Simulated scan of single mutants.
Amino acid sequence: MKEKEKFSRRGFLKTAAVMGATLTVSPALDKVQAVTHTVSNNKNILTDSARAAAITAHRTLGTGKAAFDVSALGFGVMGMTYNRSYHPDKKQCIRLLHEAMERGVTLFDTAIVYGPLNNELLAGEAFGEFHGRVNVTTKFGHEVINGKATGRQDSRPATIRRYCEESLKRLRTDVIPMFYQHRFDPNTPVEDVAGTIQDLIKEGKVLHWGMCEVSADTIRKAHAVCPLTAIQSEYHLMHREVERNGVLDVCRELGIGFVPYSPMNRGFLGGDLNEYTEFDPNNDNRTTLPRFTPEAMRANYRIVSVLQRYGRERGMTAAQLALGWLLQKAPWIVPIPGTTKLSHLEENLRTLEFALTAEEWKQLEDAVAAIPVTGDRYNAEQQKQVGF
C-alpha cells in the first residue's frame, strides 16, 4: 500500500466531521460532489483521503436463478430506530441513508420486527422512489400483533403472505428484493415455508429469499424446495460458530451467499464501547446480553486492543479490520454494518481500500483467538430462537 493511502481514524473522523457539518446545513446534501468540494477547500484538512469514500465493488449472493448482485458492503438499518439506544431524528436518518446510496451501497437490510414496523416505514420513506437503484431486504417470522412483538414465531403460509403484503406497503414497493425468514418456526415445516416463498416468487412479489440463524440441515431442506440466495447469521471475530457448525460449509457447497449481521459485535469491535457505556434500557437489547455487562466488556476489550494495535501498523482502524476479516473469508460474504454516523459510514466504506496478505489476516485471527471471549452472545431465552 502506498504511504499516502494510509490514514488514521482521527484524521478521517476529523474530515468526516467537517463533511457532517456540511450535510447538516447544505440543502443539496445528496450531492456528494458538493460535500467533497467543501472539504477540499479547507487547506488544514485536505489530504488524499479527504475525498468522500465510495464503494464500487460488487459481490453476488447465490447462484443460478437465485443470484443477486449487490454492493460488497451492505447497510443494516435496524439501529436507526431499534435496539441501539439513542439515534438521530427521522430526517437525519434518511439523509444518511441517501448518503450511503449515493456512495454506492445498494443493499439495505430491515425487518418487520424492528420497531416493530417503524424500521420498515423508515426504509420505505427513504428508498420508495429509488426502485431499481437500491435493494431493501426485509424479514418475516417474528409474530407482530397490533404493532407489538409477542416473542413467538409464526411462519405459517397464510401469515407469510400477509406479512409480505404488509411489508410491500411499508416499503413502498411492488416487489421485495429478498425476503428472509427471520427465525426458524418449530411449528411450521421448513418445506412449507420454502413452498410459500416459491409461490410468492412466481407471483412476482418476491425476487429472492433467505433464512436467518438456521442449521445446515434446515438449509438443505429449504434449498431443495426453493433455491436460497443467502443465509444471514451473526459472524465476526468474537463469534465464529458458523465456521464450526457446517453453515458456511453448506453455503459453499450449495452456492448460497452469506450475510453476516452485527459484523462488529454490535459496535464493540469498533472500539467505541466499554464498561462505562450506558445503554438505553428501553431501546437497546445489549442490556440483556451477557457479553455486554460491564465486567464482560472490560475483559473483552483486550480483543479490541489487539485490533487497534494491529491496525496502527497498517493505517487501519479496528472496525476496518473487523469488516476486512469477513470480506476476505469468501467472495460470497457481504457484511451489513449499521450506523447513525457519517464518520462511521466513511470508515466502513474505506475498508475496501485496504489489502492485507493471507498471512497477515491469519496473524490477526490467531491473536484474537488466543483471547477467550467472556459472556454468551444471547441469554437463555434468546438462544432458544436460533436454529442451532
Rank of each mutant, 00 (worst) to 15 (best):
V32Q: 10
R95L: 11
Y261C: 02
R9S: 12
L364N: 01
P227A: 03
W332Y: 14
N42T: 12
Q153S: 12
R162M: 10
D199C: 08
L96N: 01
G271E: 02
E129R: 09
H98E: 05
S215F: 01
F258S: 00
D376W: 09
L97W: 04
D280F: 08
N282H: 13
V250E: 05
D30L: 13
L269H: 05
T138N: 08
Q33A: 13
S26L: 08
E203H: 13
Y180M: 01
V368S: 10
E213V: 13
Y114G: 04
C164Y: 02
Q33M: 12
R156Q: 10
P189I: 08
T188Q: 08
T357M: 06
S49Q: 14
G151F: 06
R240P: 12
V193D: 00
K384M: 07
D154P: 00
F184C: 05
V214R: 00
I256K: 01
Q308K: 14
M297P: 00
L228Y: 10
S85F: 10
H182E: 03
L352W: 11
Y301Q: 09
P177A: 09
E381V: 13
L46M: 12
D174Y: 02
V144R: 08
R377G: 07
D217S: 15
K90Q: 11
F108D: 00
N42K: 14
Q382I: 13
M101S: 15
L61K: 04
A17S: 08
E143L: 09
